[in-house]
Each structure stands twice: as structure tokens, then as C-alpha cells.
Amino acid sequence: MPATSDGPTAPDNPTPQDRRAPAINRVTAEDITAALKAGFSDFLARPVMSGFFGLFYAAFGILFVWCLVWLGAIWMVIPAAVGFPLVAPFAAAGLYEISRRLQAGVGFGWADILTVMANQRKRELGWMAFVTLFVFWVWSYQVRLWLAIILQDSSFSDVGGFLTIVFFTPEGWTFLAIGTVVGAALSAVLFSVTVVAMPMLLDRDTDIVTAMITSVRVVAENPVVMLAWAAIISVTMLLSLVPAFLGLIFTLPILGHTTWHLYRRAVTPPAA
């Protein structure tokens, strides 16, 4: 489909102008259901384009795990696979733009989506990516720390041996318990500051601090509903990793599109 640019495009001003805190709406379970339906509809409207982002994310995950095995970092394979979904919000930036244009009724092609994503380097979405990757880095090193403290005498020659130690020894159970608690805390922090911030930075000319504060406000004012949405994302993403990351080809696009529609329901749209 030829690219068109006759409709509204995401702002690319490198200097954010609007620092006013937007109004937060009350979000219900019905909003999540409606957002999921809209997200699935967006996926069906652009299955190839949406699936491309899912395929790219899945391929990167497979390559990442293969590199860990090749480097002999067997102990890092499972933690990396579990922590990999932490960077999904940034990977879904192109999906937010697809949903934004579909919702606005604007025609678009590959060039429009990729150009808008490239222009984000001039704005503050890049800083949001830094925050996301920093949390993933912290996740990785806290796993290494607990491995050194709890499983210091263990030897991991292959993935099977690592799984045996982790799931069938008392030390492994302790490692899992602590890792789960710490991982849940990091995931909660990252979810709170990104669930609305990512699409908001793409949608309007604002700064990263305002976007992150707005995201935290949405979670704080709708704790039960947003916790349910976080659980849906976590379970869906983890299940998608089972078939060699290939489930992400479908689940990442749908969740990404859904996140956009949930953001539009949770945050009052910018003034025209």
C-alpha cells in the first residue's frame, strides 16, 4: 500500500512544549474488554504490519538467548527469557502509531510508520527507552547477585542442569522465591511508569517527567483494574515465550494495540 501523509502525524518537535498534567479518567473492567476488542480489530486491520513488529521482537529474543548459550552464560538464559518482556513497551512503539492512525481514520503505509518511529529520536521517547533498558539491566544483575549468594557452589553446564538445580533443590527454591519477589517489584515499577507514558509520548508533545507522572497517576487512581491489566500482560507474554518466542508474533501486536486504546480511555485527549 503506498505511503500517504495527508493526515495528522505525531509531533516531532524536539523541544516539548505542553507540560500540563492531563486529566485522568476512571477505568473499569469494561474498558479493558473494549480496549482488547479494539486492539484485536487493529491487528486484523493491519495483520502483516502488526505482525512484523511481533516477529522482530521474537527474532531478537531468540537471538539474545542463542548468544547467551553461545557465550556459555547458561545461568542467564531463563532469567533473561523471563525478564525479556520488560522491554516490550518500547518495542510496541510502532504498534501505538498504527492504532493512532487507524483511530483517526488516516491512511498510512510502511514509510509513515517507520518515519514517525525514526523521528522519535528527536523527542523524549528515547529517554523512555533508556529507563526501560536500565530496569532490564538491574533485573539481570540482581539475578546474577542472588545466583552468586544462594547458588554459589552450583555448576551450570547446560540449561537442563540449571533447571534441575533451580526447581529441585532447596537452594533453587530460595533463589526462585527471592527472584520472584524482586522481579515483581521491578516489574510493578516499570509497568507503573510506562503503561501510559509510552503511548502518551508518541501521541502528544510532552516531556518524559509529565508522561511518567501521568502513568503513575493512572495506576494509582485505578489500582485494581490496572493490576488486572498487568496480570493479563504478564501471563500472556510468558505463555508466548513457551513456543520458542514465536507466540509473540501475535500476542505482542494485540497487547500493543490494546495498550494504546486503554491509554486513550484512561487519559483525557489533548486539546485540538
Rank of each mutant, 00 (worst) to 15 (best):
T9Q: 15
F191S: 08
W137S: 05
A3S: 15
D207T: 13
A29W: 11
W229K: 00
G39K: 12
P89G: 04
L238G: 06
S41Y: 02
A184P: 03
A129E: 02
L248H: 03
R144E: 07
P85Q: 14
G160H: 11
F245W: 15
T268C: 06
G183V: 03
I213Y: 00
E97R: 00
L145A: 11
E124D: 11
T206F: 03
A38E: 13
G83L: 08
T251C: 01
P11E: 01
G39Y: 14
R101G: 04
A10T: 08
T236L: 12
D12P: 00
H257G: 02
G109D: 13
I24A: 13
V87W: 10
T169Y: 07
R123C: 04
L163K: 13
W137R: 04
D203Q: 05
L145H: 07
L102F: 05
W146I: 05
A271N: 06
L44G: 01
R144P: 05
F245D: 09
R20W: 10
I165T: 13
F90R: 00
V182P: 01
F191M: 06
F136I: 01
L133M: 10
V65R: 13
T115M: 03
G105C: 07
I232Y: 02
F108P: 09
A230N: 06
S215Y: 15
R265L: 07
R46E: 15
A188V: 12
I178R: 02
M226I: 14
S140T: 11
L239P: 09
G51Y: 01
S187C: 08
T15Q: 10
V195E: 05
P89D: 05
A35S: 12
M237T: 09
V159M: 11
A129Y: 12
D42C: 01
L63S: 15
I254T: 05
F52E: 02
C67R: 15
V182S: 11
L227P: 05
P269R: 10
A104Q: 12
A184H: 10
I62E: 06
P85R: 05
R265P: 13
W139N: 10
Y141W: 14
D18R: 06
P47F: 08
V48P: 08
A188M: 10
G179L: 08
W229Y: 11
T259E: 10
F56T: 01
M237R: 03
L248R: 00
G126Q: 06
A188F: 14
S157K: 06
V77F: 07
F191W: 03
V267D: 06
R100S: 03
L239K: 01
F40Y: 09
T9D: 14
M212L: 04
Y57W: 10
A35V: 12
T164Y: 03
R144L: 12
S50M: 00
L63P: 07
A129C: 00
F40L: 15
I213S: 02
T251P: 04
F60W: 12
N13T: 02
F156I: 01
V143H: 13
V224L: 14
D112S: 14
N25V: 10
S155D: 10
A29N: 09
M117D: 06
G109T: 04
I78V: 15
F43P: 05
D158I: 01
D31R: 03
D203E: 10
T268S: 13
F60R: 02
G183F: 08
F64Q: 09
G109V: 14
V138K: 02
